[in-house]
Write a protein that binds this DNA or RNA. Structure first.
Length: 972
DNA sequence: CGCTCCTAACC
DNA sequence: AGGTTAGGAGCGA
């Protein structure tokens, strides 16, 4: 080896496990031999060789080897008998594959290196050291952190799965230290999977920071007594020897005696016939074809090789579920809605779900037959499977249907061979039968999905609506089992409205979960690459379960008097929200990046100040470390502790300290605010932008107890507004050229609703007369005139008004106003004296909730509080406050929902092109043609202000304030 | 990698 | 003090 040469070292053992875990466990050869890991391994290796063959000289490997662990006992066990002691034995079906994988490496004509008493890592370390000494470059194909210590100027780690290369800078970024200090860092942190003990309580962040400060592990251990944090100091002293032992365990041996000298690793073209013979024997059809083509070998001329292992253990065959229960119908006349609902419920719990009865639709003719069935039934449970979880970018992979319980099918549309990605599974021909071409399928589906006579039933149907919308299909009419469940059972303690939960609750059946189907994290694979038969079971089951749930739940709506809530507040909002999500809001990337830079600068400055004041560098973002500095090292008076017994360091605590003249806490508060703004907004938002520069949030209609919407991925309902720096972020939300953003928000809507519901004359009068409501409250309570009122008096009244909405407690008010609890109690008593209606409302609401188990908004939406009678006074009081708040918050939520539902027709009627983009609880944001701004504002205000009527006549006016500007900050 | 805890952004 | 979602730290499998 010489300068300019490039050695590739593949960490074979790690490769095996990655290949094994990345593939479904049941990949087998025709004789039952498990070969999933071999298959994955060969594909990864071939990919690497292919890349190398096509890469330019100088980067491509000149030397190449695959390194394996030889056995589990190494020289490290002599140092520490517990080393890797808790490693589990490899999975049974993997064991017979080990020798096959070595055969594979030989078939590729690559050196297969292993040595008794050493780990693969030691051999890698030794070859690396020698290659660098000879002037060569090294690429280690692995992502094991134990190998990071080898990284250097000429040595990189290559993570093939993620296609990421790690040099010294990347190591530093990942672990906080350069590779030279990795050994010391690992010695401190330890490694649970290898049983390397390390020092308790020290994680990677702390370790990096300590090494940064003290230089080396040895220096740190010697000067451990200087550490300020009590627990950390004690641990470093007590476990110093353990750290030294750990260091020996994690240090790789660079002087392993080598049986194959470095120069013998010189690469050469694999022998086509030999390799093809092996791959054929393994029945890797696709890979055989590829390799044969690349190496110009005629596969049909080559015979299968004989393998070193034959007929290894066969896996147990899965017993298919035999029972096939008949679908239950409404055979008896149901005299009342309650009777029907009850019988449906009973029937559903007894049904058995047979996945083997589901069909896979492979041709247009069968699909048409299914659509005929839907037409006949008048209903179609419908579910889409997409390539990504977010509806606005996921591609359609397949759709499933159900027309009656047990009668369900899956239509694959864009499935690919399981080995379309790097890791090979079974071959194309085995898994992919025919698929109806997407265009043809849509032509058949569209008339049904848009047929007003056929009800499309979905679970979270907004998702499917969005997906189909992007394929030019406007699904209608729709029903949504999730929303029916939500209208029926919204609660702060009962389970949610996800399909799996509903199925278990109402059908007593646990459906295949998405995780089971596709795996999670590193092992996750796209649903398009999962075998179609499995997806059929999963997807058709979803449609089947949705249909069964619909039968149970829909009948309850009438029986329980909730049809109005569902029909007027839930169902019609679905397409409205789908369109809002699809539109997205335009964001100016430049503004965000400028802000981000500014924040970064300020942040760095603050960090320096903080380190200076603390006398050491630490992570201000770690409440644990911060607590130790403030209350341990600096000895400041610590106040609260959190649930877990740690010092609390929330804003309140820090601001109290700051008020006493301590500088550090106020710097921390600033740092936190800045870090939050940067991390959550200026840095994160650009990742959510599409090609057109727009952000599409996802609104959830069923995740709050009260009827409010929520927004996620990203959450656009918590964009900063309080501070000036925060508001700057809003300036990045803009209208495109020629348009304006219009923001319209209800003024004091919850207080107005309270005034109406509790029937408080003074409050109602004040709202009718347009008087400052908080000043009026203050004047009533403290007997001071509104004119020339001390702002702090008004502030107190304002806090009380909000407190009332939240189901006030002396504790909460005292906290908010930073006054003694007795004083807060006094305020509350006086408030009740002045506004006795409020106390009556609270008492009545509590009594109602206890009696019925739920409370209602003015529009009949229910929020359930099953724990309101709890023995535990804290739990009970919490439920009482929530029950007091829910009708107020919920009525406001209902009103804005009604406004949103009416908005689009109202705008259309006025021939306005304004498009509604966002909802933020009491605010709606629109994108409006400049020329139409004034007219739009008029329509928007009218719709919003009149939204409660005619069903509910609120006895105070609802007032909406609206403004237009080029960005959200100025419009708000 | 997934979970809990803590903190903080919004109405 | 009512209703939310997100991100970082730390821990354990």
């Amino acid at each position: 080896m010489q300068k300019g040469d490039h050695l590739f070292l593949v960490d074979g053992s790690a490769y095996i496990f990655r290949a094994y875990h990345a593939l479904p466990p049941l990949t087998r050869k025709s004789d039952g031999l498990p070969v999933g890991a071999v298959s994955g391994f060969c594909n990864m290796l071939w990919k690497l060789i292919e890349d190398a063959r096509s890469t330019e000289v100088g980067v491509a490997p000149t030397h190449f080897a695959v390194i394996f662990d030889y056995s589990s006992t190494t020289f490290r066990n002599a140092l520490y008998d517990q080393y890797k002691a808790n490693r589990e034995a490899p999975p049974k079906d993997l064991v017979p594959q080990f020798s096959l994988i070595r055969d594979a490496v030989r078939a590729f004509d690559l050196p297969c290196i292993e040595k008794e008493g050493y780990e693969a890592d030691d051999l890698i370390a030794t070859y690396t050291t020698q290659a660098v000494a000879a002037g060569g470059d090294v690429t280690i194909v692995s992502s094991d952190k134990d190998l990071m210590q080898l990284v250097g100027e000429r040595v990189i780690l290559y993570d093939q799965m993620k296609d990421k290369r790690l040099g010294p800078e990347e190591v530093k970024e990942k672990f906080g230290v350069y590779p030279e200090k990795m050994i010391d860092l690992q010695a401190l942190v330890g490694d649970t999977s290898d049983n390397v003990p390390g020092v308790p309580g020290i994680g990677p962040k702390t370790a990096a920071q300590l090494l940064d400060e003290y230089g080396t592990l040895e220096a740190l251990l010697e000067r451990a007594s200087e550490i300020k944090q009590t627990k950390r100091r004690e641990n470093l002293i007590e476990f110093a020897d353990q750290a030294r032992l750990s260091k020996k365990l994690v240090t790789l041996d660079c002087e392993t005696p080598l049986d194959t000298p470095l120069d013998d690793l010189f690469i050469h073209e694999p022998d086509g016939e030999k390799l093809v013979a092996f791959l054929k024997a393994m029945e890797f059809t696709t890979l055989t074809r590829r390799v044969a083509a690349a190496l110009e070998t005629d596969a049909s001329e080559v015979e299968r090789a004989s393998l070193s292992v034959e007929g290894a253990p066969r896996g147990p065959d899965l017993d298919p579920v035999a029972a096939n229960a008949p679908a239950s119908g409404d055979t008896l006349f149901a005299a009342t809605p309650q009777g029907l609902a009850e019988r449906r419920r009973e029937a559903a719990t007894g049904e058995v779900i047979d996945r083997s009865a589901y069909e896979t639709i492979r041709d247009a003719k069968t699909l048409r037959a299914w659509m005929d069935e839907a037409r006949e039934a008048g209903i179609l449970a419908f579910d889409t499977e997409t390539s990504e979880l977010s509806a606005y970018k996921g591609e359609l992979v397949g759709v499933s249907f159900a027309t009656r319980p047990g009668r369900a099918a899956y239509l694959p549309l864009a499935h690919v061979a399981a080995d379309a990605d790097l890791l090979s599974g079974p071959d194309e021909a085995e898994t992919l039968g025919g698929q109806v071409p997407l265009g043809e399928a849509l032509d058949i589906l569209k008339p049904i999905l848009e047929d007003p006579a056929i009800l499309k039933i979905g679970q979270n149907v907004k998702y499917d609506l969005l997906v189909m919308l992007r394929h030019g299909v406007e699904m209608a009419p729709i029903d949504d089992t999730m929303l029916i469940s939500y209208a029926l059972d919204a609660s702060n303690s009962l389970a949610g409205h996800g399909m799996d939960e509903l199925s278990e609750r109402f059908l007593g059946h646990k459906p295949i979960s998405y995780k089971e189907l596709c795996g999670t994290g590193r092992n996750a694979k796209p649903i398009a690459a999962v075998e179609i038969d499995k997806v059929t079971e999963y997807a058709a089951e979803d449609a089947d379960v949705t249909l069964r749930l619909w039968r149970v739940l829909k009948s309850r709506l009438t029986a329980e008097g909730l049809a109005h809530v569902y029909e007027r507040l839930e169902r019609p909002l679905v397409p409205v929200l789908a369109r809002m999500e699809e539109r997205g809001i335009m964001v100016d990337r430049q503004i965000l990046s400028r802000l981000s830079g500014r924040f970064a600068q300020k942040q760095a400055g603050l960090e320096a100040e903080i380190a200076d004041m603390a006398g050491e560098t630490f992570n201000p973002g770690s409440p644990k470390q911060l607590g130790e500095i403030l209350f341990g090292k600096l000895g400041l008076p610590g106040g609260k502790k959190t649930k877990t017994g740690q010092w609390s360091t929330d804003v309140k605590v820090l601001e109290d300290l700051a008020a006493e003249g301590h500088e550090l806490p106020s710097r921390i508060v600033e740092w936190r605010q800045l870090t939050k703004l940067k991390g959550t907004y200026t840095d994160a938002l650009p990742n959510h932008m599409d090609e057109a520069g727009r952000i599409h949030t996802s609104f959830s209609m069923a995740s709050t107890t009260t009827g409010r919407l929520s927004s996620s991925e990203p959450n656009l309902q918590n964009i900063p507004v309080r501070t000036e720096e925060g508001r700057a972020i809003r300036t990045a939300f803009v209208a495109p050229k020629g348009k304006k953003l219009v923001s319209a928000d209800y003024s004091q809507i919850e207080l107005r609703i309270l005034a109406h519901i509790a029937d408080i004359p003074q409050l109602k009068d004040a709202f009718r007369d347009g008087i400052d409501i908080h000043a009026m409250t203050a004047s009533e309570m403290f007997g001071v005139p509104v004119e020339g009122m001390d702002p702090s008096v008004r502030r107190r009244a304002k806090a009380i008004n909000f407190g009332i909405i939240y189901g006030i407690s002396a504790f909460g008010l005292a906290n908010q106003l930073a006054i003694p609890r007795e004083e807060a109690g006094l305020y509350i008593r006086r408030y009740f004296e002045r506004f006795p209606g409020i106390r009556d409302y609270m008492d009545e609401t509590k009594a109602y909730a206890k009696k019925h188990g739920y409370v209602e908004t003015l529009f009949g939406r229910r929020a359930h509080y099953p724990d309101i009678g709890a023995k535990n006074p804290q739990v009970r009081a919490f439920n009482e406050r929530a029950a007091i708040n829910a009708p107020i918050q919920g009525t406001a939520a209902d009103i804005i929902r009604r406004a949103m539902i009416r908005m689009e027709p109202a705008l259309a009627k006025a021939k306005l092109s304004a498009r509604m983009l966002l909802q933020v609880h009491d605010e709606l944001v629109f994108e409006v043609e400049e020329a139409e701004v004034d007219e739009t504002i008029t329509v928007v205000k009218n719709v919003m202000e009149a939204a409660a009527g005619p069903r509910v006549e609120i006895s105070v006016p609802l007032v909406v304030e609206a403004a237009a500007a080029t960005n959200w900050e100025e419009a708000h």
